[in-house]
Design a binder for these strands. Sequence first.
DNA 1: AATATCTATGAAATACTTTTCATATGAATA
DNA 2: TATTCATATGAAAAGTATTTCATAGATATT
Lengths: 109, 109
Amino acid sequence: MNSALVTNNFSTYHVFFRNLANPLKIRIISALKEKESSVNDLAYELNVEQSKVSHALALLKKCNIVKYKKKGKERIYSLNKKTIIPLLKLIDEHSKSFCNCKSCKGCEK
Amino acid sequence: MNSALVTNNFSTYHVFFRNLANPLKIRIISALKEKESSVNDLAYELNVEQSKVSHALALLKKCNIVKYKKKGKERIYSLNKKTIIPLLKLIDEHSKSFCNCKSCKGCEK
DNA sequence: AATATCTATGAAATACTTTTCATATGAATA
DNA sequence: TATTCATATGAAAAGTATTTCATAGATATT
């Protein structure tokens, strides 16, 4: 039958995809794909200010893309792998065809 | 080995995903999934101003999500189905788990 | 309890996207 | 070729997201 894409009003889809529409959040997701990290570790690794990472993580968490566990005064963030990994794979494939191509003029900057 | 997500610098991914992070563009994609349409048809069907649809289509086209063929003075837009449909499917599945849920507080508005 | 470390948060500033509106372009037709 | 219809486009306005910076809240350590 009709998929949700047809029957829904889409009022919420974009909240989720906004996270993939942002370079920093994609970098965070990518880093967490390799290993779980504290906020400071991420900030150091990505060379980005701590509060910037915190703000980004808060949004990723809202959409269940990441989760954390406490460890002393740290928060160890990890990717919600079971559900996110298949999406990442698709992103990869699409990026190959779409996101660094001659035909996609929008990708230049 | 490492996927593109790991080795790339992601500078362009977000350009593509921005299109999915916008309700109007998702609505256009959804409409085109059902049938190809002219700009005016889309504008009428979605009850949105013509130039708004045009601007949105321009961005979708930049990322190869849609294409068009000329027909008289019309431009008949269609979805780049072969590559986009699998993505839409995944979006559907993810939206079910993420985008209208109790746990996703960000989805409320 | 005072201090240090890690992370979160609020709010203003900045940057970016989308919308709007007026107009331009291009194709068909009278 | 003047007019009409369909679409695109530029630029200002409006809307939204991100960044920045100062500071607050927690937890650990002294």
